[in-house]
Design a protein around this nucleic acid. Structure first.
Lengths: 238, 238
DNA sequence: TGTACATCAGTGAACGCGCGTTCACTGATGTAC
DNA sequence: TGTACATCAGTGAACGCGCGTTCACTGATGTAC
């Protein structure tokens, strides 16, 4: 066992402990809500002292920031994988697969969904310079890809849209316009509409508001998604 | 000044103080998030001792429960008033007016919106026997009225819907079926879809996710709503 | 291989804080005769 | 009208708790010669 090997092990252990801290934090949030993420609770769960965590994260807020980043990445990976796996020749299928990946991811880690889309941890303030994490922008770009896929079919529905480039955030456009050169303002707006549409159903489900109404939220999502695709003028394949 | 008059004044003062406690709680939540609702903070704000509040609410959770109830009532009143004010002969107008009332209410009291639709106060657990407040059911019935209005126009879109009565909560059906006798299961599902649709855009806006994308969330909502009505086959009037 | 030193993960006690809630109380307001 | 009593809103001190964070430290692991 060489010197660098030994050092490597130390680093590996460090990384593993850091990862476990974050896992425990997410697990705590899953069972006790966002307020359950406290350094002392995490330490208790791991059999350490609370301040041992300061060896890994400078501050509780730093931990939360890192957590949010991880969660965004996990979501972005999930939907990107689904999108890439669906055949490019079947736009309706791609959109549906993307949307289902979004919902499935949310159902699999509702605590993560709440962390990034709901009220985050009490007392937490995001870092100042903090642009949204890269992964958040990947999700956003994915949504625009959805809209760009639908656009040629749906264009005629938005003939009288009032949207101008000036209605959008310049930072968003800097990412989106080069990637989808043919997409007009109303097409970018379409991405936000689709997002809102899907987000609503998923949010209601995650926060338990659908559960008191229907026992088949999956059926609701599936049918609504099919109708969304149809209303955009994209006929599903085989 | 008679005896009952004096007693009446005492009662009135009591009611006013209770109302002020709730107002202060909402104001605190508006500025500091749901975690800011604490008895001590409310008392501080009102210039009282924290335990004086125990004269009005048995427990902090009782206060929050009462708060949630008030907020639901305020929402239900807002959308019902808008609905009633729109002419019954203009279904598209009624739906749009209802939806705008929903969004306007949320924008006017985002803290209320978060309280009922997001993570509520940390540490709060709703009362056990707690059915949803009456007002929550009024909102739900209002949504079904929306769907029932749209149904005759949109029916053909849902010809192949799989929804059965057994997909819904019996308590929901007990309220809804007598009120809208002609509405089939797919029509009730339509109410949930419309809800999800609107909820998504409003939630994204309230939680600040739209703000980083577009400067015109109102335009987005207006156009999306117009397209929703159109896609349901209801042509707007005048 | 053996010894002296450096690194560094984790300890344990302590700090000051804000929280919900309890308790015995005070003092003003209203009531009964 | 005047006095004795009841009501009851609010006080002030205290409780036990969990929190984030700081501090001086220990003891095992790895490094240099």
């Amino acid at each position: 066992m060489t010197g660098t090997g030994a050092t490597g092990r130390r680093e590996r252990l460090r990384a593993e402990t850091a990862a476990e801290i974050k896992n425990v934090a997410l697990r705590l949030m899953a069972s006790g809500g966002p307020g359950a993420i406290t350094l002392r609770a995490i330490a208790r769960e791991m059999g350490m002292t609370a301040n041992a965590i300061y060896g890994y994260f400078a501050t509780r807020d730093d931990l939360v920031t890192s957590l949010v980043d991880d969660v965004y990445t996990s979501l972005a990976d999930a939907v990107a994988t689904a999108w890439d796996a669906a055949p490019a020749g079947d736009p309706a299928g791609r959109i549906q697969v993307w949307a289902h990946a979004f919902r499935d991811w949310a159902l699999a880690s509702p605590e993560g969904f709440r962390l990034i889309y709901g009220d985050s941890v009490p007392g937490y303030t995001a870092p100042e310079g903090g642009a949204a994490p890269d992964a958040a922008q990947r999700v956003c770009t994915g949504l625009t890809a959805l809209a760009a896929t639908a656009w040629p079919h749906a264009e005629h529905l938005y003939a009288d849209s009032d949207f101008q480039w000036s209605d959008f955030d310049p930072g968003l456009l800097a990412k989106v316009r080069p990637a989808f050169p043919g997409l007009p303002p109303a097409g970018v707006a379409l991405a936000l509409r689709i997002w809102g549409h899907l987000h609503g159903l998923v949010t209601l489900e995650i926060y338990g508001h659908l559960r008191t109404q229907t026992v088949s939220p999956d059926k609701l999502f599936r049918e609504e998604l099919a109708q969304l695709v149809r209303s955009l003028g994209i006929s599903p394949k085989g």
